[in-house]
Every structure is written in C-alpha cells, then in structure tokens.
Simulated assay, not measured.
Amino acid sequence: MQNESVSNVRENVTEAEWKMRVDLAACYRLIAMYGWDDLVFTHISARVPDTEDAFLINPYGLLFEEITASNLVKVNQAGEKISPSDYDINPAGFTIHSAVHGARHDAHCVLHLHTGDGVAVSAQEQGLLPISQQSLFPLSNLAYHDYEGIALNPEEKVRLVADLGDANFMILRNHGLLTCASSVADAFLFMYIMQKACEVQIKAQSGGATLTQIPAQILAGIQAASAQVTKGAGGDIAWPALLRKLRRTDSSFEE
C-alpha cells in the first residue's frame, strides 16, 4: 500500500513534470509492448523540466508494463531520491543515465535496451552496417562505447560521455543500444529505428549471401531527408498515435 505522499504525486508536481512523467511511463509501456524489455534490467530516464539535477527513472523491481506516471522515482545526479517513493532504483543503470544527463544538457531523455538483436549487433566487430534504409538514420549520428563490465564504476562515466560526444545513437559493445534526445518522443523514435536496423541486419546475415552496402553519398544526405519525411516533427510525427494505441489497450500508465 502506497503512503499518502506517494499516492498524491500529481498534486505535488508541476504540470510540466506530470506531462514528462506520463510520456516516460508511456515509453516504458511501449518498450514492453514491442517486446524489447529485459525483465527489470534496462532503463529509460527523463530530466524533470526546469531542473538541472533531477531525473525520473523506473522503480527497480517493477516490470515495464507496471510503470505508471506516479510510481516513477525522482532522483538527483547522485541517484538519491529527492521525493517520497516506496521504491529504490538500480544503481548500475543510473550510472549510465546520470553520465549522459550530466554531460548533455540537450539529452532530456535517455533510453537504454538489451534487445537480442541489439546485443547481437553490438557484439559484431563492424557494428551496424549500412545495409538497410533503417540503418542510415543511426549511422548518420552513431557512437560506440567499449564494454567495461557491469556499469558500477563511476570512472566509466568520463569515457562513456567522451565516446558519445554529440551523438544521439550509441552502441554499447557487447551490451546493447542507447539513444538520447530532447524529448521522450524523439528518443523512442530513434530507438525504434536503430532496433529495426539491428533486426534487419541479423536477418540479412542469417541468409548467408553477400550483403549489398548503401553508398556513402546516400548516407551523407539522410538527415535532411529525415527532416523532410517527418515534416520537421521528429518523434512527434508518431508519438500521439502511439499514445492513442496505449490508451486503447491499457491507460493505467497515466495514473
């Protein structure tokens, strides 16, 4: 049973924070819906609007399908809870998220997954290959970070953010995928595209035939083409429809 201060979260946060909570909870539900979750072991975080040091992340031990706007945990850059919560967070997960949030003020949402196809591509020496239309979007803005073990060493933060630079897509070698963006909608769309590119790559490789790679000059123009396809809306081109889909199936993420 939640205590009163937890159950009344909406009454005790700003409208901007509540909207961010709803979007972040929706993102967790969508990851579960697409089958990209890994029990309780991956994370999506979002900066609390109008703050520099406050972030929302999943309560450790809940499945992604159980995440709601109210049960997200608010922590500071050190991973300490700064509002009442019945739940703890995963310290290893927040090592990665706090590193990105701390170094990239434009990264309001950080999304990290361990999907089978994503990990499979992360284990390949050549990484993501330019063999599909989907692959071109992450390849135009992609970074890599070498595996250093479970992310408990705070010293890894420096190397991770140095490798990330100003990229919005990252492959954590032998580990998984990461995207970051100025909104939950953009971070989700980035992950959707990179995950799809990984799925296509693994399927294409399984056929055993020689793969045709897309010419470099096409890759060079992909960001301009992307802006045209989404009419400049980025992730917002699909996000309202995704929210409608969630509300038709289970609207409890908004609680």
Rank of each mutant, 00 (worst) to 15 (best):
S132G: 05
H112C: 03
A220W: 03
R104T: 10
F94M: 14
G165D: 07
V200A: 12
S135G: 13
H97N: 07
Y144H: 08
F137M: 14
P138Q: 00
Q217C: 06
Q134P: 03
N90R: 09
A220D: 12
T210Y: 07
P138T: 00
A162S: 09
N153C: 08
V121Q: 00
Q133A: 12
Q205E: 12
A99N: 07
C109D: 03
E148Q: 15
G208V: 08
T230L: 12
H145Y: 07
G207E: 13
P138N: 00
A143D: 05
H101Y: 03
Y144D: 00
A227W: 12
S122T: 01
N174G: 04
M170L: 11
E156G: 00
H114Y: 03
A92R: 01
L136M: 14
Y144S: 04
G127I: 01
Q124T: 08
L211W: 02
V200S: 10
G127M: 07
S140V: 02
N168R: 15
A181W: 00
I171V: 13
K203M: 13
F169T: 07
S132Q: 06
V121L: 00
L142W: 05
G116R: 13
G116V: 12
G176Q: 08
I96V: 15
K231G: 10
L129Q: 14
R104Q: 08
N90Q: 10
A92Y: 06
N168I: 05
Y192R: 13
E199V: 09
C109Q: 00
Y144F: 11
R104S: 07
S122N: 09
V100N: 07
I202T: 13
K157G: 08
L177A: 06
Y144K: 04
V121Y: 01
H114E: 03
R173M: 07
L129E: 13
P91I: 08
S132P: 05
A120M: 05
E148L: 09
V229Q: 14
T230A: 10
H97Q: 08
M191S: 11
Q217N: 14
F190R: 15
Q133V: 12
S135E: 04
L172A: 07
S98I: 06
